[in-house]
Nucleic acid binder design. Sequence first.
DNA 1: TCAGTGACTGACC
DNA 2: GGGTCAGCCACTG
Length: 112
Amino acid sequence: MSNKEKVDFFENVYSVVKKIPFGKVTTYGAIAKYLGSSKSARVVGWAMNASHLNKDIPAHRVVNRIGLLTGKKHFFGINLMRQLLENEGLIIENDQIKDFELFFWDPIKELE
DNA sequence: TCAGTGACTGACC
DNA sequence: GGGTCAGCCACTG
């Protein structure tokens, strides 16, 4: 079977996430769409889950489509994800990024 | 092999 | 305008 392709998908996710510039964020759906299947947003989330072991992945810069920090509970500290984002100049209000669109970084447009 | 689950999303009511 | 539902794909038991 072709495990390689699956791994490849994960690697693609990682490489995109790594390219998210400081102070910017993106969504699972945007990454999934950039990789060819916008339906695979959940798989992107799974990739983030697997990225736990990979500290080079700024998983805190990936949120759902409304800027909600749904993945914060997967961080060691509940406030860690928020703290990291605030450290990059973002404003977190009620576990949600304030003015999310202003900080939204679209790999489809930016990487094209 | 089958069924359940999830860091999602879009559509529908 | 918010709550719910159903697809979506990969992983696990």
